[in-house]
Amino acid sequence: MFIAISAVILVAIAIGLLRAFLGPTLYDRVLAANMSGTLTVLMVAVLGFMTGRPEFLDIALVYVLISFVSTIAVLRVCGTGCGASRDPEADSGEG
């Protein structure tokens, strides 16, 4: 059963990745990265239960904090300046 849950999470991560590839703006990519972070946390938690050693939840805790800090960092370090422009190659599908 845990395998079903982790399969769903993997599918969701794959869809999030697709959004990160497609863009089209930087914000969409940050959003996708943020969602992948959440999903990775859940997957690590589920994996811990699946392998029968749920004490590894510390890792999931670190992931929550780190993905939050890095999301904030994108917005603060780059400011509004560098995110405003649409990446031109994302629209043309060049990637």
């Binding site: 940050v30 990775t40 992931y63």
Partner: peptide, 21 residues
């Protein structure tokens, strides 16, 4: 393939999370 370095950085972050899992 990404030409925007910011986009590449965001993907690098996802890449890292994936390798961590």
């Amino acid at each position: 393939r990404m030409r925007s370095l910011l986009a590449a950085t965001m993907l690098t972050s996802i890449y890292s999370l994936l390798s961590a899992s």
